[in-house]
């Protein structure tokens, strides 16, 4: 039973990170029907910027807590600028292009960002400075750390904030209107360009937060870390029904739990035939099975006929 609880905790932590990244995908998709493949790279840049800024300030003698906050602020701002820039350079000019065209520019931007990061930060693994005290707790036979608790809390708060923004503010209303019908929304006086830019900026800020969480959790970062993380998060967004905010959150948490439990029990389930290195298969298998029965995700609305 303690393994079960332990894996649930691990899954929740990983899942909250997935959920935050998935929100970035789903917001952009909901509004413009585009898979922003470069979003994983934005997350990666968020982690690496934090490492540089916080690491530098800590070395300069600043208290860890302030250095961490400064790192967080700078990295969120950098990622917001990056998200805005991505939209301006790679997506806005292609809004009326064939549907696969922005997918290829997204992939191009993803390659560009990865290599820029490699030129700036090098190809080695970087250690993330310990921003949070390493306190451990025990509950019912399972161990968890302060970092894990904070990750879950911060992501829950952030998601609450996002829901408030989307369902209770004017900008949120404009976003929902745009996602339903851009042409009509613009006739009603919604500035479509600003709404789309806002979606990219907010998504990137969430991505930066997620990046910092990944850094504090795994204490390590690398210029290629965004790729698999982005892929998993995107899977989570699709699992929940892409374009749906609650779906992305639940999809992320669900994916984290499935992976953790899968990794914990796959050996027992298959009599030792498959080991925990098959962990990644679980995410995709569950996705395929879910989509077989619910072709537009767990919480998604029926998609249109855009093949």
């Amino acid at each position: 039973m303690d393994i079960f609880l332990q894996q649930i905790i691990n899954g929740l932590v990983q899942g909250s990170i997935y959920a935050l990244v998935a929100l970035g995908y789903t917001m952009v998709y909901g509004i413009m029907g585009l898979i922003n493949f470069a979003h994983g790279e934005v997350v990666m840049i968020g982690t690496l910027v934090t490492i540089s800024v916080a690491g530098f300030l800590i070395k300069a003698g600043m208290p860890v807590i302030f250095a961490g906050l400064a790192g967080l602020t700078v990295s969120v701002l950098v990622c917001m600028a990056l998200g805005w820039g991505l939209e301006r350079v790679a997506y806005r000019p292609l809004r009326n292009a064939p549907r696969l065209t922005p997918l290829i520019t997204a992939i191009g931007m993803s390659i560009v960002l990865q290599n820029v990061a490699m030129i700036i930060w090098g190809r080695n693994y970087l250690t993330f400075p310990p921003l949070l005290p390493s306190v451990a707790f025990e509950f019912g036979g399972a161990h968890f750390t302060a970092v894990q608790v904070i990750i879950v809390l911060v992501s829950a708060l952030t998601m609450g904030g996002l829901l408030f923004l989307v369902y209770r503010t004017k900008l949120g209303m404009a976003m929902r209107a745009t996602s339903q019908n851009p042409a009509v929304a613009s006739l009603m006086g919604v500035n479509i360009n600003r709404v789309i830019a806002a979606a990219f900026i907010i998504g990137s800020a969430l991505g930066a937060l997620a990046g910092i969480m990944v850094g504090t959790y795994y204490e390590i970062a690398h210029y290629q870390m965004g790729f698999m993380l982005g892929l998993k998060a995107f899977t989570a967004a699709v699992l929940g029904g892409i374009g749906n905010l609650a779906g992305a959150m639940l999809g992320g948490i669900l994916l984290g739990l499935i992976e953790a439990l899968g990794a914990g029990y796959i050996g027992d389930l298959t009599g030792g035939f498959l080991g925990s290195h098959y962990q990644d298969i679980f995410a995709f298998l569950v996705l395929i099975v879910v989509l077989m029965f619910k072709p537009s995700g767990l919480f998604g609305e029926k998609t249109g006929d855009r093949a």
Partner: peptide, 26 residues
Amino acid sequence: TLKLRGDYLAIVTLGFGEIVRIFMNN
């Protein structure tokens, strides 16, 4: 995957590709 459309199909095929690679790796 025949029922799936557009981007849902894309992610499932992507997952399938990864599954094949992971099996070959392990």
